[in-house]
Amino acid sequence: MFNITFMKHLNPLVVLMEIEAPFIAKKTKPGQFVILRIDEKGERVPFTVSSTDAIKGRVTIIFQMVGKTTRMLGALKVGDQICDFVGPLGMPTELSGIKKVAVVGGGLGCAIAYPQARYLYEHGAEVDIIAGFRTKDIIILEDELKACSNKLLICTDDGSYGEKGFVTNVLERRINEGAGYDCVIAIGPLPMMKFVSILTKKHNIKTIVSMNPIMIDGTGMCGGCRVTVGGKIRFACVEGPDFDGHQVDFDEAIKRLSTYKTEETQMLDHYCRLNGAV
């Protein structure tokens, strides 16, 4: 059983949760994830680790409430316990040798890319963060992102804050201004990572994306998380979740993510009606 030690809603749908897990806190590196189960009947769900406190022995995840399990998780309180928590899973992001980077985050992706941005900034790289959100009200981690970047460029789809436009627009402008990135790290919804990769391929800039397939075990035994990279099947939980954005078959990944749409909708519906949230 693992204790929840801190919780905060960053916007109406996004929750920051800190869980006591001393061994995992000590070992996790940027880019790795954990899998948790809330209770005996729960499903196993992966969450990227946003930050760790090795001294206090705590792991922080930031997640969006999209389905039944994430809603149940968001409804818990400090002091509650979750029954299973396993990690660190996946490979850490390959960050050595990066001198000038554009960390591009889409929505919740900004929280997922935050550990890499922070690591690179703390280790002397020049870090531009391009953070895109649909609208002003759902912006998260602005102060944290500012603190680990040389340039923080926020953009919103509707122009309610920062620049109006998509992260690809801002990234393209920066490249054309001669930013000279030796690497782009893009994390966000699959279509966003796809279009960032298409853009950076034109300019021949190495691009790392973080895949988010459906997972069950997280250790490489089921293949549910398989992604086609460079024409070969790779397991996101074993060799990923980071892959070369120019080689990933995004269209296939988008389709595979919808495998349980029907079941997910039914479960969420049922949960909401039971809990009066509808």
Partner: peptide
């Protein structure tokens, strides 16, 4: 159906 993990 009392368990949350889906299956096709």
């Amino acid at each position: 159906e009392n368990y949350d993990t889906p299956i096709r």
